Amino acid sequence: MKKITLLITLFIVTLGQGQTFSTGTIQLFPEYSVKIDVTSSLVTLTQIMPSDRWYALAFNNSSMLSGDIIAFINTANISDRQLGGFAVPAADAVQSWTTISNTLNGTVRTVVSTRALNTGEAGDYVFSASAGSINLAAARAGNATFSLAAHGGSANAATTAAFGITLDNSEFDLNSFTMYPNPSTSATTIQLPHNISKGTVKVYDNLGRVVLNQEISNESNELNTSSLPSGNYLVVLRTDYGNATKTLLVE
């Protein structure tokens, strides 16, 4: 059984309530990449790797000898385990990760798995829904085998580097907010983009004056336009994730 070395990779996690944040693709080995997406309630892990051997990823692995680890050790699922010194990582009594997709494209396997931020299980890493950092360690078999090996010895290495995590712009398009009815006679409703729960709306007339300034949310999103003279107005939606503008016609 070939022993391998776990190497630590650091990336910064920045999370936001109601949004999806993503590491993007992190290349830990030339043939092994991971991507971690986090919302306020769910972690999604995507692994891409050769189909003929095991790979492992550890969370919060500061000493390379302890920490929460997942390992792909067969063709069906990933295994939730605990690092413990130089022994083969022991399987957790409760398997917290659920594999939702496991596909092959030639000799390349893509595995997508999910779990809660906090499983409540002892030893499981708790993902934070606030800004912070996490240590990652990646490991792989030195030859074609699904027999999980212990830490130690010499092996192929991943380069330690810093990776950022940013808002996943594929999750929503800020400019997708809608106003209806438009044209408006007495009121118009602002429908916020997917996964945005609140914002500030400012309405400008053709002289650049603010004629309406209102906080909106999914529960309170109607603008009263009955006092506005007929004409075209610029509606600016401001959120924590950027601004967007549309034109409103008042009749």
Rank of each mutant, 00 (worst) to 15 (best):
G24H: 05
F29S: 07
P181K: 13
N118V: 10
S33I: 08
W54G: 11
W54H: 04
S226V: 13
N77Q: 12
I48F: 08
R109C: 08
S197Y: 08
R115C: 06
T245A: 15
T166E: 12
L28M: 06
V88M: 03
Q19I: 00
I78G: 08
N182M: 07
L28N: 12
L83Y: 03
T245Y: 09
V235A: 11
G84A: 15
D68H: 10
F72V: 11
G67H: 11
M179S: 09
H151V: 07
T98H: 13
G142P: 05
K3P: 04
L117I: 13
N195P: 06
D205R: 04
N195H: 12
T166M: 07
P89E: 11
Y204T: 04
Y241H: 02
S62E: 09
Y233D: 14
L167W: 02
L45M: 10
T114F: 01
L6M: 07
F163T: 11
A71P: 02
A122Y: 08
A93E: 14
W97D: 00
Y32V: 14
G164W: 00
A90N: 06
P193Q: 13
L65P: 00
N61F: 10
V201D: 08
S62G: 15
T145Y: 01
Q214E: 14
L42E: 14
Y55F: 10
S226W: 03
I165R: 02
S197I: 03
N105G: 11
Y204W: 12
